[in-house]
């Protein structure tokens, strides 16, 4: 299949790291990376029930005259044909509409804040809204380019988690890399989760493609995070709650992303996935 990943290119050393990560992701799963070099500090993403305006910080517009050639060099370094995305439609002259017709989107942890904040484990509100409405998975890269050698799926039994598991299996199939599943036993026992995937018809691919399925008691959440290999791509489902809901109810995604520095591949509530 012709899977496409959209990357918003930032012409800075930090941007180079995230772009390399996107290129590596595409190369590993045999997808096509498309780089968008922004010409204004904002753009719009129109999803089926929301229009998300992404306000970029000024580092995205650094040295616009060298941005394309720098991106091309990185494409070449990874042995990938350079491909750039050009917006066709504009809501206003300085507000391009970016297509949401992609299979993956690469986001730093926060698109609107300076990269210095990212180390603080903060996921920006725009990234949350993108996750909430996107019909495609969102790749949130580690701050430094870090090739991953395995896939770790966090499976909690929800609908989103099932989508994430399907995506993990798909990535494992495309990349040939080993897949591990991590489950935190909150209210149910091991058998419940095994029955669940059997009901969803995922038992066979899980048996074929996964290396190991780890179960942890609820209290051992931090241990589980520590056990995830540092060079593994973490795949998880998220609801894309706003900050207020997260503060009230807590957010696993927030906890995970602020604790581990791995690359994260997140499926939101509108993301659907099949193994075919």
């Amino acid at each position: 299949m012709n899977y496409k990943l959209l990357h918003i290119f930032r012409n800075t050393p930090f941007g180079r790291e995230t772009f390399l990560q996107s290129l590596y992701f595409c190369k590993t799963i045999n997808a096509f990376p498309l780089a968008y070099i922004p010409r204004s500090d904002k753009f719009l993403l129109y999803f089926s029930n929301d229009a998300v305006q992404v306000d970029l910080d000024h580092s995205y517009l650094t040295s616009p005259d060298t941005a394309k050639s720098n991106a091309e060099k990185l494409f070449e370094e990874m042995g990938t044909k350079p491909m750039f995305y050009e917006p066709k439609n504009f809501t206003a002259s300085s507000l391009p509409d970016i297509s949401t017709n992609f299979d993956y989107l690469c986001c730093p942890r926060s698109v609107s804040d300076m990269s210095s904040k990212i180390g603080l484990g903060h996921i920006g509100p725009r990234v949350r809204r993108i996750i909430k409405h996107a019909t495609f998975p969102v790749l949130i890269t580690s701050p430094v380019f870090k090739p991953w050698k395995s896939i770790s799926v966090f499976f909690g039994g929800s609908k989103n988690a099932l989508t994430a598991l399907t995506l993990g299996l798909k990535i494992a199939l495309a990349s040939g890399l080993p897949l591990d599943i991590y489950t935190l036993l909150e209210k149910q026992d091991e058998a419940y989760y095994r029955e669940l995937i059997e009901k969803e018809g995922l038992d066979e691919p899980v048996t074929q493609l996964s290396r190991q399925w780890f179960f942890y008691e609820k209290a051992h959440f931090d241990t589980m995070l520590y056990d995830v290999p540092h060079n593994s791509l973490i795949v998880l489902g998220a609801y894309g709650h706003g900050i207020i809901k997260d503060l009230l109810l807590g957010s696993k995604m927030e906890q995970i992303q602020s604790t581990v520095m791995n690359n994260l591949l997140i499926t939101g509530p509108h993301c659907s996935m099949s193994l075919q």
């Binding site: 206003a92 002259s93 507000l95």
Partner: peptide
Amino acid sequence: REGAGHGVPEVIYA
């Protein structure tokens, strides 16, 4: 951080 414009064409466009 709104794009420039008079507003009405933006509504018609949307």
